[in-house]
Design a protein around this nucleic acid. Structure first.
Lengths: 215, 215
DNA sequence: AACGAACCGTACCGTACGGTACGCCCATAT
DNA sequence: ATATGGGCGTACCGTACGGTACGGTTCGTT
């Protein structure tokens, strides 16, 4: 838990955030478009300032990803009253948040950038994205799963396995196809089916781990 | 189906394949290490030859990915006698092949390269990897699923959905974590659990879509 | 008013790399 | 033996980009 890199709102001044926004925009528009000159021009600042604030290109990239990844805050899910209905609703909420996040252009860009980065030895960005993406969800979902198990609504030997199954049921091949730029899978295309996919994933998860279904 | 890019063994001469091997090695060793000079030195050939054979850097990259991706040939799965046992065995075989492929260094490198490539406008590599990865599996698995449905072993409204669920149950978060360079998930780490994961995925899939379980 | 800090814009430097040109070797054909 | 062509090695060119330097401007402080 101490591993999570904390980025407060106050970490960056508004001016700096404007710079980071420019950097992110360039990243989204054109993955390799993040040249220092381009960011400086887009943000109407001098390159010297960029180097003063962020050290070097990698620092700017890291700051951008950190700042943006930390913004992915999923809405709070109630875990007080644990009826089957409430559990299903929570699962659907998680699935919906996960899917809508994943198919967003920003998320795709961040993941692509981090993966490109990880292809070289420097794996900072990969960890940042992981920490704010899958791991953040895991941290939030696991206690709910465990509470549901304690309430005899779910049955599983290992909450880690249960979480990963949920992830798989929700994400399936959507993320990798989007990352690879599958033209047969536009965001709007996925977006239209989110609700039915969400329901299907929750149903399947409950079929696999709900108390009724499992022996 | 005509979309699949065909790459015969004879497409490249042995000497050319040696060059492609060198290129792939450099790619695996260091994602951005694929400079024309480096490939030429590694393969003991001249840059001029590279340009003569492959046109430009992108052509070399594409040839490398095509050539390597086309090598991913999964073993044939018998689909003649369709007992429950044979079906489960087939599913496990698919899951095993999928997992072992995905966690391989070559696959990770290819996917990372294609994703990096897709981050710019050029999406050739993404399609090639997709076509030889997920889509190849889909083409092989779908008829088996449909045969099993016709034999009343499985029940699903949509074979596409069934395939994607299978994919999700098998891959879960493994691929994205490996692509992002998650240090808590080494190949050997995953490899050790392949067999149990494979069994679990097949079990879960049969629980969801097997005739016995569904109403 | 005077000073200084922060910052913009631009010019500049060094390097890395894609791509080209050229000289040489060697193998095969005639 | 000689010619020819495919290919190796190297040197070279142009450009793009990371990083630095510097003059000019704005703004806050005293």
């Amino acid at each position: 838990m101490a591993l999570a890199i904390k980025v407060n709102e106050e970490t960056f001044t508004p001016r700096q955030q404007a710079v980071l926004t420019a950097a992110l925009d360039l990243l989204v528009e054109n993955g390799d478009g993040l040249t220092m000159t381009a960011v400086a021009r887009r943000a109407s600042c001098s390159k010297e300032t960029l180097y003063k604030w962020f050290g070097d290109r990698d620092g700017l990239l890291t700051a951008t990803v950190q700042w943006q990844a930390a913004k992915v805050r999923m809405p709070f899910v109630d875990r007080s009253h644990l009826s089957v209905k409430a559990l299903r609703s929570s699962l659907e909420q998680f699935a919906r948040d996960l899917l809508t996040t994943i198919i967003g252009e920003v998320s795709i860009t961040l993941n692509r950038t981090a993966i490109t980065h990880a292809a070289q030895e420097k794996d900072d960005l990969g960890n940042i994205v992981l920490e704010n993406g899958p791991m953040a969800i895991r941290r939030r979902l696991k206690p709910i799963l465990e509470a549901a198990r304690d309430a005899r609504l779910l049955r599983f030997p290992n909450s880690e396995e249960a979480y990963r199954t949920f992830f798989g049921l929700v994400v399936r091949d959507v993320q990798i196809r989007l990352l690879l730029g599958d033209k047969g899978l536009t965001q709007s295309n996925v977006e239209a089916n989110i609700e039915s996919d969400v329901k299907a994933a929750a149903d399947q998860f409950l079929t696999l781990y709900g108390v009724k279904a499992n022996s």
